[in-house]
Amino acid sequence: MAKAVLVDLRRCIGCRSCQVACKRWNERKTTKTVLNPDPKLEWTNPPQLSPETYTFVRFVKSGSGDSLKWHFAKIQCNHCIDPHCVNGCPTTALEKTEEGPVIYRKELCIGCKYCVNTCPFGVPQWDDKNKIIEKCTFCSERLKEGIEPACVQACPTDTLVLMDLDEAKMKASEAESKGLYTYGLREVGGTSWIYVSDVPFSELGFPEHTSEPPKVQQFSLLTKFVGTGILVSGALLAAIKLYAQRREAVAKAEEGE
């Protein structure tokens, strides 16, 4: 059964436990930050996704005086129903699983950065050091075991709730019918992370998208074939290189001891 996370931003208090829990479970390091200089986004840190940050909470102020509001929006991979990154990936490094997550296998990645450059939400992050992409995994390994994603488990106010995709869609539609705003119900053909908010998403810095999934340049089948070919031939070279690197690393580690 496909899973989804319903993100009810009306409940978010900006505590960032999701952000830190994600770093913990996925063993992410930190980036150097300073007090966010953008007056509208004050306190947002880290300020954007990066190979070390699969998710962060964007702090957004709106209004002023007595109508001042402070909104908090968790940003991560939305795990599209029909993911552009998967469709466009020249190999099968990116895959939409049955449970909902869009997962990534670095061994299959040829580093073309197609996904990085074309994701409608700007999610995949290129790790130039390791020549791989990094992004939210929806904790697919946890989902398989029936455990909530780390961020969902950590959320104290039930802003993040894991549920069946159909149920999430239904609840989001209900919310819409009550005049609330949603995001991910239709955008790019729908996503597995669906947001509900009492302010328009444009105010929260979410990109505007129609319900049309972005068009993949129609070479996918061919490129997938070709890409896989490149990959297989590259794999051998890579294996040799990896073996050499590994030997070097082991030698270094032993030396270190």
Binding site: C15, R16, S17, Q19, V20, R24, E148, A154, P156
Partner: peptide, 9 residues
Amino acid sequence: GSTCSKLAA
């Protein structure tokens, strides 16, 4: 099961 950011760290 939930935490704040401090306990998460």
